[in-house]
């Protein structure tokens, strides 16, 4: 069975990687202007061409594709971490309120630092961090850490959404930004927006994967994990912080994208099993594929009009979420 699981994992990683490369090329080539593969490869290899297509590729499509990869990888990995560490199949950065926390702080940065996009990444992570620390404190004082984290997250999320709407209502100047922000969109992302998030997202995925064995042990329950010598409370904080970092970084440039972190880990578990050391990178990879498909569909389906990626992800994600509610009732997800 273990050999079969390994074979399944290998096939999954191989197919997902091939699909990702294909989607990257499609993402670079398709749009209002079609750019042939040969020209894409030439512009990417030479880097200094100044044709119209080269400008489109470098300043519009390449940042957008990279943003899609980082978004999917960050949210997919964050979902896999949270679902395992909280032993709840309905956990994601959305459901525990981390996205809303990051979103609220990004909105504050739009007010206080409107011309400083770098401030967004920092504020997003700060927002995610403050929210998650607040939720962990609540859980600690309520003495029921796992369920309370989810319930507190949903409550905080609603509160912060209302606060964001209040800001939108009171400050007309940020309404245009905040519309795409609250839906989640990759349009208009620049390479400079991605530098700081990438520095956060890629190491966080790597660290979480390296600590995956601890995540596997935690999924056995606190009592058993502590009996095996694991510092459960320390690790829980580390993993929740890593998930916050991932979600915060994504929210800083892509807005409040939903459902990726919820759906992707479930699909991955089906193919790769429950070992967090495999599940986290698998969720990052499939998350990237998932977001690129949604973004590409949003650009191509109704061209020349564009649908923000968040709309397509929510349209496909919501039915899956309901399916989970009906089938599993939000019970444990074991690794």
């Amino acid at each position: 069975m273990k050999k079969k699981a390994h074979a399944n994992s290998r096939i999954f990683f191989l197919l997902s990687a091939v699909l990702l490369v294909l989607l990257i090329l499609l993402g670079l080539g398709l749009g209002s202007v079609r750019i042939p593969l040969r020209e894409i490869l030439r512009v990417l290899s030479e880097g200094d061409a100044e044709t119209a297509n080269a400008v489109i590729l470098r300043s519009v499509r390449l940042p957008r594709v990279l943003a899609g990869i980082l978004t999917g990888a960050g949210l997919g990995a964050a979902g896999a971490i949270l679902q395992t560490v909280l032993n709840n199949s309905l956990a994601s950065s959305n459901t525990i309120g981390v996205n809303s926390g990051a979103g609220f702080f990004v909105m504050l940065s739009m007010i206080f630092f409107p011309k400083d996009p770098a401030a967004r990444s920092g504020m997003a992570f700060l927002g995610a961090l403050i929210t998650v620390l607040f939720i962990l404190c609540l859980a600690y004082f309520a003495e029921r850490s796992r369920v309370t984290i989810i319930l507190a997250g949903i409550t905080i999320s609603s509160f912060l959404s209302a606060a964001m709407n209040l800001i939108k209502t009171l400050d007309d100047s940020i309404v245009i930004n905040s519309l795409t922000f609250s839906i989640g969109s990759l349009a208009g992302v620049r390479l400079s927006n991605l530098a700081y998030p990438a520095i956060g997202i890629l190491p966080a995925i790597l660290i979480a994967t390296l600590l995956g064995k601890a995540l596997n042990i935690m999924s056995l329950g606190d009592g058993t994990a502590m009996s095996l010598g694991l510092k459960v409370h320390h690790y829980r904080i580390v993993f929740v912080l890593l998930a916050s970092l991932l979600a915060g970084c994504v929210v800083s440039y892509a807005g409040l994208i939903s459902f990726v972190g919820l759906i992707v880990p479930h699909v991955c578990r089906y193919f790769t099993g429950h070992d967090a050391r495999v599940l986290i990178p698998a969720s990052a990879l499939l998350g990237a594929v998932f977001v690129l498909i949604a973004d590409l569909a949003g650009r191509v389906l109704f061209a020349p009009y564009e649908l923000p990626v968040g709309i397509l992800l929510s349209l496909s994600g919501a039915p899956f979420f309901l399916y989970l509610l009906l089938k599993k009732g939000g019970r444990r997800v074991n690794a």
Binding site: I217, G221, G223, H274, N334
Partner: peptide, 29 residues
């Protein structure tokens, strides 16, 4: 964890790992 092991009464639902995988967790310390 190397000196005293613990068989918990309450563990929640069973994990989706093989018996060998579960037994391997016993070697974690």
């Amino acid at each position: 964890a190397k000196r005293l092991s613990f068989f918990s009464q309450l563990r929640g639902s069973a994990p989706n790992i093989s018996v060998r995988g579960l037994v391997e967790h016993g070697r974690f310390p």
